[in-house]
Amino acid sequence: MGGNQAAMSFLGNIAKVAFSFGLGGSLLSSSLYTVDGGQRAVIFDRIRGVLGETVGEGTHFLIPGLQKPFIFDIRTRPHTFSSVSGTKDLQMVHLTLRVLSRPNVENLPWLFVNLGTEYDEKVLPSIGNEILKAVVAQFNADQLLTERPQVSAMARESLIKRASEFNIVLDDVAITHLSYGAEFSKAVEQKQVAQQEAERSKFVVAKAEQERRAAIIRAEGESESAKLISDATSAAGMGLIELRKIEASREIAATLAKSPNVAYVPPGMNMLLGMNPGR
């Protein structure tokens, strides 16, 4: 009986020790938290509220049940959102804006208190639309294409300044897409067609003018040639004309001599060939 009691007491002590170790391990586990690379933590204390210090990377202690960590990702993240804005000449433009944002690490407690961990989703779309509408309203629709770098620069500068009011840092801001409404696109297409037709008409007119000038020059050349011939004929008398006749006769004779079907009849033989032998 005494042995059983001793064994039971021993087992009870072991259980107490195991329970103590288990409880201690549980308390130790709940009092530790880890902040990974590219993250920061903000501590909420049930007595003092959100602590003003930001906790860096590594494993840290807290008071279980009294303190709780909230983890922030401080790496740069991309965000894309679209906006339909009106231009200075009352045309509707569809724009897509891409930003690379990250939180201001020194002011993470302020971000957590005022905006929470999803601060970027709450702030960036609203201020992005606000800035785009304000910038686009300063330009005509066609200027958005011809002066796109200036538009992007204005949007970048304004949006960076506006985001800093919420302790959000923007590393890059860019307009990635720009398109117009159907009516304006059709008007632009018609304008391009009209410009092409105008250029074609200019080409036709220029071509006709060149042909006219060529005809005038050709006529002037022919007139000058006729004048020279007339002057030469007047100066040389009929001798030049006779010379041209002789040259033409020589060319005709040379051509006929090369033909095998042509016979040469000396002068005077024509009468003999025409006589009738029976008479």
Rank of each mutant, 00 (worst) to 15 (best):
D45K: 01
T96Q: 14
L108K: 02
S85R: 01
L51T: 05
K122R: 11
K68S: 09
P103C: 03
K133E: 12
G52A: 10
L108A: 04
T54M: 01
T96K: 10
S101E: 15
D73W: 11
T96H: 04
P64Y: 11
K122W: 05
Q39A: 08
L115A: 13
P103Y: 09
D45V: 07
K68Y: 14
A134L: 08
N114V: 06
L100G: 13
F72W: 06
S101R: 12
L111Q: 07
N129L: 11
P78W: 02
R102K: 14
S101A: 14
L124S: 03
A41C: 04
K133S: 11
H94A: 13
E57M: 13
G128H: 01
D89P: 09
E130N: 09
F81Y: 06
L124M: 08
E121P: 00
Q67I: 03
S82L: 07
T76P: 15
R75A: 01
V42K: 01
L51I: 06
I47E: 11
Q91M: 15
Q91A: 10
V93Q: 05
L90P: 08
V105K: 13
Q91G: 10
N114C: 08
E130Y: 11
S126G: 10
V93H: 08
S85A: 05
P109M: 01
G128V: 01
V50I: 14
E130A: 01
G86H: 07
R46D: 04
R40S: 10
H79Q: 15
R75I: 00
G56E: 12
I63H: 01
F61C: 13
T96P: 00
T87D: 09
L124V: 04
D89T: 05
N104R: 10
G52E: 09
P78E: 08
N114M: 12
V113R: 15
R40K: 08
T54F: 02
E53Y: 10
Q39G: 04
G37K: 08
R40L: 06
L62V: 01
T59C: 04
M92F: 15
F61G: 12
K88Y: 08
R98P: 00
P78Q: 02
G52F: 00
W110I: 13
Q67M: 07
L108M: 04
F72M: 04
K133C: 09
N129Q: 15
T80P: 07
V42E: 00
V55S: 09
V105H: 01
V50D: 11
E106S: 10
